[in-house]
Simulated scan of single mutants.
Amino acid sequence: MLGRRQILFGALGLITLGALPARGADANLLKRFGAPKTRVQGGTRSGRGKAQPEVLLSEEPALSATAEPDLFWYLSADYGLRVELTLTPVGSTEPLLHQVQKRGAAAGIHALSLKDADVRLAEGQDYVFALTLVPDPTVRTADVSARGTLRFVPHGPFTDARAAAAAGYWVDAFAMADRALRVALLEDVDLPRPADWLLNQAA
């Protein structure tokens, strides 16, 4: 009997001759290094029905093989007010990037291109990537934020997303992955809400 995950993958046309691995086969896709967890996801007191922000990074510092990667973030519901994206070197109070979307953003997964933003990461430096919903710019205590950490550690080109994940490079693995593998990667690092959102796009 097929479970929920297999049924939804079937809607993507992926249940063909082993195209969909068993659930256990996709566990632990990402190599871990035993570093402290740095990801903190946003939430609201009455979370149901309200937009909740999440940064799509691994729980421990996410590795990037390139200095200008794409970073991904997620909103659980449409949000029509101010959204802020920041990238700040750990140990600094001045963000390297501060992007403001005054009209908010739709529910779902979004990408931020550091190349398009003309931002380069320094090798070996940790950065905090933060997503903040701002209902009232004059009352910042009402902000709802999510944040995670990433680090640029140069690496040669990966053959595919699975190879990047096996080497511990979350940023590259997620950017290279197709939809099905992105779902598996999100589940692997305990990000079920964006994983479900991706699955439901095919339902």
Rank of each mutant, 00 (worst) to 15 (best):
L2R: 10
L2P: 11
G3C: 15
R5N: 14
I7C: 13
F9N: 12
A11E: 10
L12S: 11
G13A: 06
L17W: 13
A19S: 14
P21Y: 08
A22E: 15
R23Q: 10
R23C: 07
R23Y: 09
D26W: 05
K31S: 11
A35I: 05
K37N: 11
R39V: 02
Q41P: 02
G43H: 02
G43Q: 04
G43K: 07
G49F: 11
E60C: 13
P61Q: 06
A62L: 06
S64F: 08
A67F: 07
E68R: 14
P69I: 03
L71E: 00
L71W: 01
L71G: 03
Y74K: 00
Y74V: 04
A77P: 02
Y79I: 01
G80A: 15
R82P: 02
V83I: 08
L87Q: 07
P89I: 09
V90Q: 14
S92C: 05
L97H: 06
H98I: 08
H98L: 15
Q99A: 14
Q101V: 09
Q101E: 12
Q101D: 13
R103A: 13
A106D: 11
A107I: 06
G108W: 01
H110D: 01
S113D: 05
K115D: 12
V119F: 05
R120N: 10
A122K: 09
G124R: 05
Y127H: 04
F129Y: 11
T132L: 05
A142N: 13
A146K: 02
R147A: 10
G148N: 03
V153M: 07
H155N: 15
A164F: 03
A165R: 04
A166P: 02
A167E: 14
A167D: 07
W170Y: 09
D172T: 10
D172H: 00
A175L: 03
A177I: 03
R179S: 13
L181T: 08
R182Q: 12
L191M: 09
L191K: 02
A195Y: 06
L199G: 07
A203L: 12
